[in-house]
Amino acid sequence: MPGETRLSVRNLRKSFGTHEVLKGISMDAQDGDVISVLGASGSGKSTFLRCINLLETPSGGEVWVDGEQIRMLHGRSGSRPASRAQVDHIRSELGMVFQGFNLWSHMTILQNVIEGPVHVLKRPKAECIAEAEELLAKVGIADKRHAYPAHLSGGQQQRAAIARSLAMKPKVMLFDEPTSALDPELVGEVLRVMRALAEEGMTMLVVTHEMSFARNVSNRVVFMRDGIIDSSGAPEDMFGAGASPAFRQFIGHFGNPQ
């Protein structure tokens, strides 16, 4: 339902040893929000995304997914989740798309897509296959369903990976630089799928270097610098007169996107 908070992050912190990568990040995503997270490499934006579904364990702060808080134990020897089962459950509600696709290489594309619904959500297989074929048609690779990942181009693999995440019917989709590993001519096909998702009202958090996506598709832009949120706002403001000096300098490297 529009207006409902799907994802809420409060004062999220993460250190590797003595190096503090995230210094207190807070952010909310309402239903249907498409948030682009921008920043130079090393600004902590990927770590931020990975802390949300606990691929990295945050050192402090709170993460709420659809009103449910991930329970953490913060002890002297570090932090850990209070319940593995809760983590698995939360992860099943968050779709994650990786820079390197990470399709399971021993399974066909169709098997990749139904793996989660059948084995994690324990839904009937026939139903999952029907849905998976619809999803594969939607991302434009229905004809590749019996191929193995190694037989696909990077762009096709990434679209398959998006279909794999969507098959879990996630409440929020996390994209970790989804087009950075692709040849330039393959970027467009993945961005088109992401734009279509955004237009359907999917809640998305996208770490990216694609300025045109940030400007034209997302409804909010977050600029990270040195482990904090430097500035955020609507793309018209961020790319317009309201830009912070640091962000202005940052986008200067990319030219002015349309």
Binding site: R84, S92, M96
Partner: peptide, 27 residues
């Protein structure tokens, strides 16, 4: 086994045993 494939299994919410049986053992 590529680390990313294990991460993808975690990210989809596979519990440890399932990950072992479905992703690690076959590979």
């Amino acid at each position: 086994i590529p680390r990313g494939e294990l991460e993808a299994a975690m990210a989809i919410g596979m519990p440890r045993r399932l990950r072992f049986r479905r992703i690690i053992v076959p590979q």
